[in-house]
Amino acid sequence: MNGAQDLGGMHGFGPVVPEPNEPVFHSEWERRAFALTLAMAMPGAWNIDMSRFARENRPPAEYLAMSYYQVWFAALETMLKQRELVADDEIVAGRSLHAPKPVTRTLTPGDVAQVLYRGAPTERATKSAATFKAGDTVRAKTINPLTHTRLPRYVRGRTGTIERVIGYHVFPDSNALGAGENPQWLYTVRFEGRELWGGDADASVTVSVDAWEPYLERA
């Protein structure tokens, strides 16, 4: 979706302000919101692409006014309510008012180290061949889906070069909808800064994105 999360190339946000000796979390609620989000993925049975869509799918003014973990927490509430794991009256009351929904798995303390160490690799086996090879010239398609996509607006319609064939990976546009992993070939595509930003741009800059095959066409 063309939401406020797609920030590349926007103006007006001011300088980057690094915080010296920044703590990992800035308050106790950030710690809990972070951990709840990670832990609930198992009983909630949602995937990372669904989580990302739940975060970005809100009015741009709202997204930009929220802190990072406020966005995470709001998305967690949304996903819990969508799946009827928690109801609004329970969030208000701060206690369980309805019988829990059966869930297949929960995260136990004994699972934590192994679950984190294993992660969730997205590469899949395939017998298909990649359409593009390193050095090919491609154009990022002009697409404007209302649903989740990982092709940023600033490269759409622009011409670049396949730098690397990465592998065959889960396709977020499909996975976010619960429509299956639908894996696709994934490429690193390099663009000249001037192709993206015009003739006045810094000629010493190149930018790459990682793009799945359905995002690309031969140019």
Binding site: A35, A39, V86
Partner: peptide, 20 residues
């Protein structure tokens, strides 16, 4: 929300502590 999720048995606060 943590209270609700804990009461319902969806999360174990000890696992949350370990993640943090």
């Amino acid at each position: 929300l943590e209270s609700v999720l804990t009461e319902k048995g969806y999360v174990d606060p000890a696992a949350l502590d370990l993640l943090i």
